[in-house]
Structures are given as structure tokens and as C-alpha cells.
Amino acid sequence: MSTETADGGNGGTVTVTQAAASEALDLIESEGLDTDQAGLRLFVQQGGCAGLSYGMRFDHEPELDDAVIEQHGLRVFVDPASRNYVGGSTLQYEGGLQGAGFHVENPNVVSECGCGESFRT
């Protein structure tokens, strides 16, 4: 298991904004999970009209082969297959009139579907 950065296909890392970390930590604590061990899993899966989509969930602890990114007190777990797609990305939290949620700003994306739910690299 590596720590601090998750290298992607472009050699970049995953960055977590302060707002995303704060929101995720609040949610993890509200689930009754230990923030010293638990974290947010960021993964890429097949699906959507553009071919790939992001997934996120809370996990109690990382898997042995996960990269573990620790920023602003949040632990983010990224599996080896997903690292190839998310290197150089920034995990953000956006709020506003149109709704609030987590967003991955990924420089590896060459196209997205019209609704922004899936992508292609």
C-alpha cells in the first residue's frame, strides 16, 4: 500500500480540496466510522454513455494494493486499475443552487457525455 499520492497513467497524483475533505470527513463521522482508519474510495467503472464513470463509497480500511492519499485529514483509497484513469485529478466538493456533491476534475478525460456522468480517456 502506498501513501500520499496515487500515480495515474500520466504520472500525476490525486489532489483533494479542503472543501471535499471537510465534507467527506463529516459524512464518514456521521456513518459512525473511525476517520483514522476509514476513508473515501474513489474508483472508475465501466458504464455510462461515454464508457467510464466514477464511483465513490466509504470503506472501513484500504485494501492491500490500494494507494492511500491523505490530505486535509481525509484518507482516499484508489485501487490499481482506477489509478490509471485518475492520475492528475482533483476531487472537489461543489455546492450551490443546482445541488451539491463531489466532482472529479480529471485532465485525462478527452470527452464526456452530455449529462457529465460518464467520460472517456
Score class of each variant (00 low, 15 high):
Leu91Gln: 09
Val104Asp: 01
Cys49Pro: 09
Leu64Gly: 01
His72Asp: 03
Tyr54Ser: 01
Glu61Ile: 01
Gly101Thr: 07
Leu74Asp: 03
Leu64Arg: 06
Val68Trp: 07
Leu64Cys: 00
Asp59Val: 10
Leu91Asn: 07
Leu64Trp: 11
Glu63His: 11
Gly55Ile: 15
Tyr54Met: 11
His60Trp: 06
Leu64Asp: 10
Gln45Ala: 14
Glu61Gly: 01
Gln45Asn: 11
Asn106Met: 05
Tyr85Asn: 08
Ser111Gln: 14
Leu97Phe: 12
Gly99Asp: 09
Ala100Ser: 15
Cys113Met: 04
Gly101Glu: 10
His72Leu: 02
Glu63Lys: 13
Ala81Gln: 10
Val86Gly: 09
Gln98Ala: 12
Leu52Arg: 15
Ile69Glu: 14
Asp65Thr: 13
His72Pro: 01
Gly95Val: 11
Met56Phe: 02
Met56Pro: 00
Asn106Val: 07
Gln46Val: 14
Phe102Thr: 08
Gly51Met: 07
Gln98Trp: 04
Leu74Thr: 03
Glu94Val: 15
Pro107Val: 05
Ser53Arg: 09
Val110Asp: 12
His103Asp: 09
Gly73Tyr: 11
Asp65Lys: 12
Cys49Met: 14
Asp65Trp: 06
Arg83Ser: 12
Gly114Trp: 02
Ser53Trp: 11
Gly96Asp: 05
Cys49Thr: 08
Gln92Glu: 15
Gln71Leu: 02
Val104Asn: 03
Gln71Ala: 08
Ala67His: 13
Gln92Asp: 13
Arg57Asp: 14
Ser82Trp: 08
Phe77Gly: 00
Tyr85Gln: 07
Asn84Ala: 09
Tyr93Gly: 04
Gly99Val: 00
Gly114Leu: 06
Pro107Asp: 13
Glu70Asp: 05
Gln92Asn: 13
Tyr93His: 14
Gln98His: 03
Ser82Gln: 04
Val86Ala: 06
Gln98Val: 05
Asn84Thr: 12
Leu91Asp: 05
Asp65Pro: 04
Gly95Arg: 14
Asn108Lys: 01
Leu97Met: 12
Val110Glu: 13
His72Tyr: 07
Val110Gly: 13
Glu94Met: 15
Arg57Trp: 11
His60Ala: 15
Ile69Ala: 11
Ser111Pro: 06
Gly55Trp: 12
Gly99Arg: 11
Phe77His: 01
Gly48Trp: 06
Asp66Pro: 02
Leu74His: 13
Val68Leu: 06
Tyr54Arg: 02
His103Gln: 13
Leu91Cys: 09
Val76Glu: 02
Glu105Tyr: 10
Ala81Asp: 14
Gly51Lys: 12
Glu61Tyr: 05
Gly73Pro: 11
Gln92Val: 03
Thr90Gln: 12
Leu97Ile: 05
Asn106Leu: 04
Thr90Pro: 06
Glu70Trp: 03
Gly101Arg: 13
Leu64Met: 03
Pro62Asn: 06
Gly47Cys: 03
Ala50Ile: 02
Asn108Leu: 10
Ser89Ala: 15
Tyr93Ala: 04
His60Ser: 15
Gly87Asn: 07
Arg75Cys: 00
Gln45Cys: 04
Ala67Pro: 00
Ser82Met: 10
Cys113Val: 07
Gly95Asn: 14
Glu112Pro: 03
Ser89Ile: 01
Glu105Leu: 15
Cys115Lys: 08
Asn108Ser: 11
Tyr93Arg: 06
Val86Tyr: 10
Arg83Ile: 00
